[in-house]
Amino acid sequence: MACCCIAKVQTPISYFRAAAANSRHSFPNSSITAFPPLHSPFNHPMKSSNPRSLSVSTTVAAAPPTFSWDDVVRVSQPEFNPRDSSDLRGYFDKIKTCNRGAELQSEFLPFVIEDQIVGYIHKSFAENLKNFEDVFISSENDSVGGILTLHRSLKLADDRTRAVEEVIKCLAENGLIPGIRNELYPVTSSYGSPVFFSLERAAAPYFGIKAYGVHMNGYVEKDGQQFLWIGRRSLVKPTFPGMLDHLVAGGLPHGISCGENLIKECEEEAGIPRILSSRAIPVGAVSYSDIDGHRFKRDVLFTYDLKLPESFVPNNQDGEVESFKVIPVNEVANIIKRTHFFKSNCNIVIIDFLFRHGYITPECFGYLDLLQSLKSGDCS
């Protein structure tokens, strides 16, 4: 399956000021009261084996939430809150959760390669990288107040990848980059642009690089009604354990197309054979920009829809999903509006599905603002 294309947009240093000055969407105030927020991950101190020379990052995974499928079903019912059918505040609340900290961007230095901004690194975290003088160098820039780049001797992508990999290993050993995945993400200024080098997935938010993923809405139709298959993440996953998730979703590693990656994830996460997964339809992309401590997530998610047979039952193959449940789409919408049960970025993709399938209509106050907010990040 061909990967959906997005226009290539490069980011020279001269654009940094304008990007930093751009304001985010203004979201209406939200008043979600059904369940308290389940924040994951959350901040927690970590220890470094060399505290004098290394600045400690603080983000780790939260404890698993305690809700059950019975809770999910109960809160999804119309009678639970019969007056919120056209109220979009719960959706805006979820968009805000994925787009925190815009006012903190001044705390980050541009990460520049070949005169292109490829990421943003927190000034405190950058102090750790400056210890590796043969890999990272900093320089002053009158327009942005300083940048971080790679040593001029690292000219080839493979050399950069190997050199940065050694730094990441050292930082991980000191507890500064938790959850090493041994999976490489491409470092590029925009989707489809030249890849400057590849970076460990767990390090991506600490370098503020553009990261891409694929998310698929797997749905069935019964008696004229649509249902979404929802997964619950394994309780032992290092990130967002026990939270609700898409039937299929995954990051986009270096060297694989969107379509092939989706087919691979379909087999691993839900046991969907290629004969079915190859029918998934690419329907667009959403984006968000989230600052949390030293982490700057600038993610773009390519979205897919797959209509499944009524008889299909997912079967997880990689141990990352605890269980699945098929739920009417209008009830999934209620879960998103009323709770924080879903992994945060899944909310955006499902809200996009609700727009495209007519569950959110122009008669709802805030319709256009919510629609535009689905691309709150740099969607390039």
Rank of each mutant, 00 (worst) to 15 (best):
S106I: 15
S257Y: 07
I348M: 08
V283N: 10
A18G: 08
A20W: 13
P362E: 08
I281S: 14
W69I: 07
K94C: 03
S124F: 06
L54A: 09
N316M: 06
A202T: 11
S76P: 02
L247Q: 01
Y367W: 14
V112R: 00
L371D: 06
F80S: 10
Q10R: 00
D290G: 01
P205I: 03
W69A: 14
R160V: 00
V135C: 01
A34M: 10
L171G: 05
S57H: 06
A163L: 04
E320G: 10
Q317E: 14
L88I: 11
D292F: 11
G175N: 05
N334I: 07
I275Y: 13
N141P: 00
S139H: 04
N345M: 07
L129Q: 08
R232V: 14
S190F: 07
K94N: 04
P78N: 12
T239E: 12
F240D: 12
D223M: 08
G119R: 08
L235Q: 12
G175F: 02
T339R: 11
L171R: 05
A211Y: 02
T361F: 14
L171K: 02
A126E: 04
R338S: 08
I168E: 01
M46C: 12
S234E: 07
R17Q: 12
I351E: 04
G366W: 03
G250A: 15
D305Y: 03
V300A: 09
N22R: 05
R17H: 07
I137M: 15
V135D: 00
T33Q: 14
D299G: 11
R279E: 03
F132Q: 01
I95R: 11
Q372N: 12
L88K: 07
S68W: 04
E265R: 15
P238G: 05
N131T: 14
G146C: 03
V195I: 15
F16D: 02
Y185E: 04
D292R: 15
P110K: 03
Y367T: 08
A163H: 12
L109A: 06
W69E: 05
S257G: 06
I281E: 13
N182L: 13
F132R: 01
V236T: 09
P238A: 06
K96G: 05
Q225V: 07
N43I: 05
G293F: 02
Y120D: 06
S57C: 09
D369R: 14
V329E: 07
R83M: 08
V349P: 06
V75S: 00
G231R: 03
V9R: 07
S234A: 11
P45N: 09
N29P: 13
A172M: 12
F136I: 04
F365N: 15
D369I: 03
Y304P: 08
S26P: 03
F196Q: 01
Y367E: 05
A63Q: 05
S277G: 01
E107M: 09
N174Q: 12
F207P: 00
E265T: 11
N174C: 15
G242K: 00
I281Q: 12
A163V: 12
I113G: 02
A63M: 11
G319M: 07
L156K: 09
E310T: 05
I95H: 11
F302T: 03
Y185M: 12
F353H: 07
L252F: 10
Q116M: 10
K123M: 11
G319R: 07
P45E: 04
P205F: 04
S53Q: 13
L354P: 06
L88V: 09
A204D: 02
H215L: 05
G271R: 00
K222N: 06
C170A: 11
D87P: 00
G90V: 15
N316F: 02
A203G: 00
S277T: 01
